[in-house]
Amino acid sequence: MNSVVGVKSLNKIYGKNDSAFAALKDINIDIKHGESVAIVGKSGSGKSTLMHLLALLDSPTDGEIIINGKKSSKLSRREKDILRNKQFGFVFQQFFLNANNTVLDNVILPLKIAGIGRRERNARGLQALNDVELGSKANNKANNLSGGEKQRVVIARALINNPSIIFADEPTGNLDSVTGEKIEEILFSLNKNKNITLIIVTHDHELAGRCGRQIRMKDGMIVEGEK
């Protein structure tokens, strides 16, 4: 299988000179297409920093990130923007929905950014909402949804561009165990049925256990999963 995300001797250092702090030290990872990977570790272990780098939201101090065979250091800012818009889906612990907009408006945001016309994006938005069984709530205000529903909206938003990778940062962190279970099911069925690569940052062992592979981090280094 092809590698979708590759990382070679990645370092991330915050600050300079005396106050320099190495958040990531010599990270090497290779994630294949269709894999489900959990990045686990305590807070401060560098797992979030790693995810931000993999998602091209941040730049490494040195080392190389290779997405679909392309070196990120060779990509322009615009190319990175397009890559994030078209290839990546994001699921956040705090949802980040626009409370006053409708559910549908929230879901179609990536398509709006991509410059896709209103008719097409609304049709695709409804399709994505149907995929997470929220089609009937398309015109509700995002604020009026329950936590579980909100996270399903976020997943619909992450899905709408038919991404090749979904980055999920503590996707069940704000949910009770029953609704959390449901979100997990949706995510893993996407991984299985649509062959979307899943990269989940979590410290929930149960969730991590359902992933095909676990990358365990400690003090900015990978201690288990891949060297």
Binding site: A55, L57, R77, R78, K80, D81, I82, L83, R84, N85, K86, F90, F96, N98, L109, P110, I113, A114
Partner: peptide, 16 residues
């Protein structure tokens, strides 16, 4: 702020 961050994460360019 968060909305801007979200849009930028989703690939909205600076100029937009």
């Amino acid at each position: 702020t968060k909305e801007i961050g979200l849009m930028k994460a989703m690939g909205m360019s600076r100029i937009k």
